[in-house]
Every structure is written in structure tokens, then in C-alpha cells.
Write a protein that binds this DNA or RNA. Structure first.
Lengths: 267, 267
DNA sequence: GAGTGGTCTAGACCACACT
DNA sequence: GTGTGGTCTAGACCACTCC
């Protein structure tokens, strides 16, 4: 009994690593996938499908190990990666939780604008200027990976810090997943926009890409930001993605950078 | 022999986790430190001290495990973290290597400027405008964590893409570690600046922080970038850090963002 | 084939949070 | 105390690289 051979584990596993090993069906790579990656994919599926909702706990490592018929260590490694990607949050002694935008310290996770004095507060005031439904331009359609004929919501808002309008933002959303979103609901909601998306539409933004440029505002933009003299602004174009790497938001922000700056860490 | 008790490992270990466990010497936190963190610190020390040089292989996991009297798994976890921080690079079948700026695909690791058409090429031309030695201003001294009376090197250069001057950069370095750096050596060197720092001065930049704003250039800056009409620029202030988290460079870049953009990923 | 990192397991024990 | 994640170990086997 001391020499029980460990089960040749790739035999009866949750996901077959490959149907036939040497019979590479024309592809150059056999696409070997470690067990923990397969587990990770399964966990991801449970997140995508909404089986586990933001801020709730997922099953314990031991339970998941039993469910998937693998060791706890393998589940750990899968969860480790999801935690590193900010999809899950581990809390020792309590459990592993689905990440959310609805918590104080991560509320403005994607907002990199910091006050010169180091204050890391979110905007004090959020004013919805406009919210309307229209057809996607080719640019927007491309960013959101939808057809130009599809309809989108366009939201314009101004964020202020200490009474000073600092950010002018245009946000475009595919109309279908956000059916029922109006200027009133946006104005009424206390909290970050991504928090609203999560709670009211079940859309959780996972990651985003930004393209940053320096621009000069036009007359209308100057007016909304209370700018009198010629002032360069940061143009921040963002595409935000949800679980399955599907783009779910396109956003263009104009940032005033006299009292604030955009902070980035390189490594 | 099947029940050899595993050695109560915190007894004779490389670094004592704490001299006396409950005798918290006035501090609120006992500062429990896992073994792998201690190993990580030791590895970090070998990197800092220059014992292992960039692009060379460090000892194998098995050897390190023997050296530190811990299991291979513990060494693995320490290396995993250093690899995640881009200090080490793992290569299956070959070994674990000290990260370097001197490789094609990571040469411009900290340069986030991308051509609009997606080209990810580095600058085609690098022209050194000036390189002189002077006393640190209070701003520079603060950024570099040195005394205002200390001397620093100031380098000014222009980077061009496809013949078009696109980046105007001022770089400040503490004079001491970079003794002997001249405009001639900078001009002569083929490769990225951080590659030169690494090879000729043993200074390896590990991470950096950037503050980004939109600005309007003055007359001299416009001239150096061949700008005729009023054009807003991206101002990118960077502090770069070496192993021990010591600031070793302050840099201010002015980026032309008509043909390029600054790319950032959020997660 | 020998050496390296990569995966997987099983089991012990520690630190932390709730109750 | 019980349950959860966190650490550590020892050993087996796999995948990749080079000789």
C-alpha cells in the first residue's frame, strides 16, 4: 500500500486533453493543455454564465477539487491565475470571492487620474449631460465588434473634483445588453458606472485597453469643462472587455491635467 | 520509516522567521514571513549584488533548494514571484535567467508609444542633443532621493520614427553611478539606453512610474520637434527604479501624438 | 540520455475568521 | 472548534533543450 501508483491522471479527466494524441489533425501544435488550465476554463465558464455572482463566495478549494476530481493543489493553481487577473479575490479564512466593482477601494479601479496632491478620491460630482440611442458609426461598431446597423447607447457626462469639471466623457454601449438604461437611472444611481452595469445588467468589466493622446478641445467641449483659455487635454480612448474578452464599452474621455495627472506603472 | 515526521521546518532555516515567537518586541504585528518570501529576499540579494548578471542563468531549482535547505517547491514559488515581476525569465528545458533590456523583443519595454497603424517598432533614429553635468534642482533631487547639492547628469535627446521627430526627452541621472557617461558614448551606442546602463554601468531598471499630462510646448521644444503650428503634446514624467527600489533615473518626455499614441492596459 | 523547468498528487501543518 | 485559504514537503512523471 506504500506503492500505490498515482493514477495516470490524464485518463478520466474533466476535459480530455486531446482526443487522439499523435493524430494531429493537420495542425502543427498538439495543443497540450495542463489540467489546471482546463480547470481554469471551467471556473471561467461558471463566472461568465453568472452561476457565481460578483461579491459572492465560490465553492471552497476542497469542494472544487472533489467536483472536478483533481487535487486541491491543481484547483489552487487555477484560482491563483484568476486571482492574478483580478477576476477572483482570495480572503484567508473566509473563502474565495468573485471580484466586483462595488467596493470602496476598487470602485474607480480603471480611473487613473490622480490629484497632484496625491488625493486618490473618486469624482465628487457626476453629471449626466445626455443619453440617447443611435446607430453605431463604423468606428464605434468596430470597437464594439458589432454591425454598423446595430443600435448603441451614447452617454455624455461630466465628472467634477471639488467643484471643478475635470473629465468630459462620451460612452458608447451596445444597446441590447443595456436595454432600459436611461439618463434618469444613471443620474439616480449612487456609485460608479461599472458598479451599475454589474448590478443592474449583469455585465462585469474585467479589463480594458486605453489609447492616450494630447488634443485641443473644440468650443462645445471647452464650454462643458468651463475652459476659457486654450488648454490642451488628455484624450483617453478606452475599450472595456467583459469575461469572454468581448468588448462591451467604448469610451472617450477628455481629462483636464492641471490639477490632476494620469498615473501609470511600468514593469 | 513510512512515518518519518516531516522536519518542523522553521527550526533550522536560512533565515529565522522571528527570534522569539510570542515576545513581540513592542510591535503590533509579529511580522510572520513565509519561507518562500525569505528565499525570494535571498535571491533578490544575489541579483542586487551583481552575483548573477543580466542574461545569465541562475542556479537550477534543485541546486538552490539544496543550498537553502528547502524543498524545490518552495524555491519555485520564490522564483515564480520574481518571474511575475519581470526580474527573472523562466525557459523550460534551459533554465532560469536574469532579465535584461538587451533583447530584441523587450528592448523598448518601458516605451508605450505605438504607431497608429499598429507598428511596434522602436525609434529609427536617436539623436543626442546635449549631455552635461550640473547640480540637482530640488525637484530632481527629490525624485532621485539625493541631496540638492549632489551633481547629476542631464541628457537631452530626440527620437524619430520614419524621419519624423516624435519624442523630446530630458533624462536626469545621479552622477556617481554613471561616472564617465558622455554624449559621445551615448551617441556611439547601438541599442536602447537601458541596455547601455545595464552593460556599461551595471544598473538594471526594474520598474517605473509615470505621470502623464497634456501640455503645450515652448518655442525651443517646438523647434526640436519640427513643429510649426500650435500642437499639444503628451508630457510623460518617469521615475525608474532599480532592484532595491532605489530611484535611479528621472525623465521627462514630450510625445507627439498625431502619428502615435500611448498605449495602456488596465486590469 | 541527462538536465532543466512544468505539472500533479497527497498529506501535514499554520494562519485566520467566524461562531 | 470548524472551516477556509496559505505554506511546505516529497516524490512521480511530463515537456523541452541540448549533446
Amino acid at each position: 500500500m506504500a506503492s500505490t501508483p498515482p493514477p495516470s491522471h490524464n485518463a478520466s479527466n474533466p476535459v480530455a486533453a486531446g482526443d487522439a494524441l499523435p493524430a494531429s489533425s493537420g495542425l502543427g501544435t498538439p495543443a497540450f493543455s495542463p489540467l489546471y488550465q482546463q480547470i481554469k476554463a471551467l471556473l471561467l465558464q461558471s463566472l461568465q454564465s453568472g452561476e457565481w455572482k460578483p461579491s459572492t463566495a465560490i465553492p471552497s478549494e476542497i469542494e472544487l477539487a472533489g467536483r472536478y476530481k483533481v487535487s486541491q493543489g491543481t484547483v489552487r493553481k487555477a484560482i491563483d491565475e484568476l486571482a492574478a487577473e483580478n477576476l477572483l479575490v482570495r480572503r484567508q479564512g473566509k473563502g474565495t470571492f468573485v471580484a466586483t466593482h462595488a467596493e470602496q477601494h476598487v470602485r474607480y479601479r480603471f480611473l487613473r487620474l490622480i490629484a497632484n496632491n496625491g488625493d486618490t478620491e473618486g469624482p465628487a460630482e457626476r453629471r449626466i449631460v445626455d443619453c440617447k440611442r443611435l446607430r453605431a458609426s463604423t468606428e464605434i461598431a468596430k470597437a464594439l465588434a458589432i454591425k454598423p446597423s446595430d443600435s448603441v447607447l451614447q452617454i455624455r457626462r461630466v465628472l467634477s473634483f471639488a467643484g471643478q469639471p475635470t473629465i468630459l466623457e462620451d460612452v458608447w454601449l451596445p444597446a441590447a445588453p443595456f436595454k432600459g438604461l436611461t439618463a434618469e437611472r444613471l443620474t439616480a444611481y449612487q456609485g460608479a458606472m461599472y458598479e451599475l452595469f454589474e448590478k443592474e445588467f449583469g455585465v462585469h468589466m474585467v479589463r480594458a485597453e486605453e489609447k492616450i493622446r494630447a488634443v485641443l478641445p473644440d468650443a462645445e467641449q471647452e464650454k462643458l469643462l468651463h475652459i476659457n483659455s486654450p488648454t490642451p487635454l488628455l484624450s483617453v480612448e478606452r475599450i472595456a472587455y467583459t469575461y469572454n474578452d468581448a468588448p462591451m464599452e467604448f469610451r472617450r474621455g477628455l481629462y483636464l491635467t492641471d490639477t490632476h495627472y494620469y498615473r501609470n506603472e511600468l514593469s
